[in-house]
Design a protein around this nucleic acid. Structure first.
Length: 285
DNA sequence: CCGTTGCCCTGCCAGC
DNA sequence: TGCTGGCAGGGCAACG
């Protein structure tokens, strides 16, 4: 499904794995590989992997058991038995795929974790912008990341606090991982549409009711997207190679010229902070 | 602390 | 038809 291809071929909306896609991958991987032991690590493209100085990524966690797989923001985190962690940022086109025994490796598998049972966990990424980072036991790797939008700590009050006094366009604030972790271009556009708020509106100009609507919309959009196992627009697939379903219910993202589902006027595309922004001029104010 | 800019990287597409 | 250049964009470093 490539919804925008009809409107203009210049608009190539990318997949961008965001919170719902990372959550889907982490849940699937937790079911599939938690408890498995890593017997070998192949690093085919060195710049993909990051480890602390003096540490060899490829050797550091051979023999480790994968205790669990979790998510933080847009990152997928392998928690290893010893307390080490492998933190994967998928960026634009990164994929984490379970390759079953005897199955061919996915194309562009830059890092392969071979498991004791013959399967492998592969990191593939055509654009090679993604990274796999080895994090030491107890190392605070996520200090720069903001609130988890689906945790109880992300309250309306805390959100109003983020908006207060800032001239930054509200969409730019939603995308700022230091404040809220996990929202990317797709879900920022969708949440703003749902709340009826113009993406360029200065954060501090939101009324309290508008802030409440947007807070609610962020939570609802992310929750629904997880239920539908993410959005597959160009590249995203889950750990089993399957597509998500949220691309079928997008209201605005990648839909320039198509009717707004609320008022039927055409969706427009503008650029805000160097990013494509889809919205309805009529019902987002 | 805050906001802005440029860079990374490759596939796709417009234009010649 | 085949080549070239611009664009896409999340995270990060560097800068003011």
């Amino acid at each position: 499904m490539r919804p925008s291809k009809t409107a203009s071929n210049r608009e190539r909306d990318c997949a961008l794995p965001e919170l719902p896609e990372a959550e889907t991958i982490a849940r699937d991987l937790d079911r599939a590989v938690a408890g498995a032991t890593i017997v070998g690590v192949d690093v085919r493209l060195r710049r993909i992997v990051v480890a602390s100085p003096g540490k060899n990524f490829a050797k550091a966690f051979i023999g480790e058991r994968i205790a669990s797989v979790a998510r933080r923001g847009k990152y997928v985190v392998l928690n290893l038995g010893s307390g080490l962690r492998v933190v994967t940022g998928l960026r634009m086109t990164g994929r984490l795929l379970v390759r079953h025994t005897e199955e061919a490796e996915p194309p562009g598998a830059h890092v392969v974790l071979r498991l004791e049972d013959g399967r492998a966990l592969c990191f593939a990424d055509v654009r090679t912008l993604g990274r796999m980072r080895l994090v030491e036991r107890g190392e605070a790797w996520d200090e720069a990341l903001g609130a988890e939008p689906l945790d109880a700590g992300f309250t309306v009050e805390s959100f109003i606090g983020m908006l207060a006094g800032r001239t930054t366009p509200v969409k730019v604030l939603l995308l700022d991982q230091r404040r809220i972790a996990g929202i990317g271009n797709i879900y920022a556009c969708e949440a703003l549409w749902k709340a009826g708020i113009r993406p360029s509106r200065p954060s501090r100009a939101l009324t309290k009711p508008a802030a409440r609507r947007l807070h609610c919309a962020v939570v609802e959009v992310l929750t629904r997207a997880i239920e539908l196992r993410g959005s597959s627009i160009d590249d995203y697939v889950d750990a089993g190679g399957r597509k998500g379903g949220f691309q079928n219910v997008l209201a605005v993202y990648g839909r320039r010229g198509r009717p707004c589902p609320r008022c039927a006027r055409p969706i427009v595309r503008t650029v805000l902070a160097q990013r494509g922004t889809w919205w309805c001029r009529s019902c987002q104010r």
